[in-house]
Design a protein around this nucleic acid. Structure first.
Lengths: 192, 192
DNA sequence: CTGAATTCTAAGCAAATGCTTTGTTATAAA
DNA sequence: TTTATAACAAAGCATTTGCTTAGAATTCAG
């Protein structure tokens, strides 16, 4: 008998994610969310309980979003080192297009959020673990394809690459293109 | 004829810096600053104009602070690669002592602050530039000492190391010790 | 001691914050 | 058509925000 929702929960969640991505958690007010999600505060709270919970859900959504729109090539079944190189170099793309790189929502949040916030911390960790698994797959594919030595310690080097990606997420926001390119070049040279 | 200040501007600024470091910019309220700095809002505003300006001053103070308390060994005249290794491994210290690593104020702020905030952005850049110069010095010292090849491209490798430090500042907040150690090990292996 | 200068305390300001309540409107099973 | 149900819009809530003002307290040259 109830009235129907006039919005799709998944759609408005994705919109919320973008607001958090653009402004950070604290800088994002419920009024801003209201505006961008296109629904009013009552609906936000009845669907997502609290601003904090909406943020946690946004982090989950972010993982889904980047897997589809950013990591797609790297998640393809046979992705190898050359795909990783292409991917890393995309961290410099905005320098050419002139757009400002807003960084990775998860890395930004790692900087902003109180480490005692367990709900958020878990989600940040999930994201990094997922990235690490992706990198491990790329490395094992690269071994299989003969790109790198079969003796390569996949665990060790995936941890290295995860660190490189975290560094890039910070660096790409503030450093000039040449410095980022150097960072990528030297990082990948460990496989030669 | 005027009344004397009952506080030292430099002292209270350092206290403010720690509040920002512990809580981030947005999470820090003027009431918290009032409490920790030990002076009231009137004095804060008459000495530092605004919360935003106090933050910018805190970033400058932070550079001074870490040079003295964190980078000291790396800034010593003859600092070499082995000093850098010791320094990087300190990113894992808190994992042993059990304390939570609160990260680097500048890296945290790079994640939190709106990139359009020019005053802050300039200060973040100053910090990274200074770090880069420090790393260049370490590399040239290492060449001189015969630790690494005299053909080492100092610019290129200092950019790499800066990226590594940015990655560590993020990673050390959330990743387990082994992963951080792997990141450091592989990073330094580029010099072998 | 006097008095101009500058500090201090503490109260106060409008605006913004996260969240809730109220009353109306749409829905679809009975 | 009726009616229980849930979604809606909009106003309202207490609290907190960054910042200011008003008045008392302290200083030291004259």
């Amino acid at each position: 008998m109830p009235r129907n929702k006039s919005y799709n929960t998944n759609d408005v969640l994705e919109k919320a994610m973008h607001v958090f991505w653009n402004n950070g958690y604290e800088q994002t007010s419920v009024r801003m969310l209201e505006k961008e999600m296109g629904i009013n505060q009552f609906s936000i709270y009845s669907s997502f309980t609290s601003k904090h919970n909406l943020f946690v859900e946004s982090l989950k959504k972010y993982r889904e979003y980047v897997n589809k729109n950013v990591y797609a090539d790297l998640l393809k079944p046979g992705a190898r080192l050359k795909d990783l190189e292409l991917f890393l170099n995309r961290f410099t793309e905005h320098k050419i297009t002139g757009k400002k790189y807003k960084g990775c929502l998860v890395v930004n949040s790692t900087g902003e959020i109180n480490p005692a916030d367990d709900e958020v911390s878990v989600e940040l960790n999930n994201y990094y673990m997922f990235n690490r698994e992706m990198l491990k797959k790329v490395l094992s594919n690269s071994i299989e394809a003969g790109d790198i030595s079969p003796e390569t310690d996949i665990d060790k080097y995936s941890n290295f690459l995860l660190g490189v990606m975290q560094g890039l997420s910070v660096g790409a926001k503030v450093l000039p293109e040449t410095q980022i390119r150097d960072f990528i070049k030297v990082s990948l040279s460990v496989f030669k």
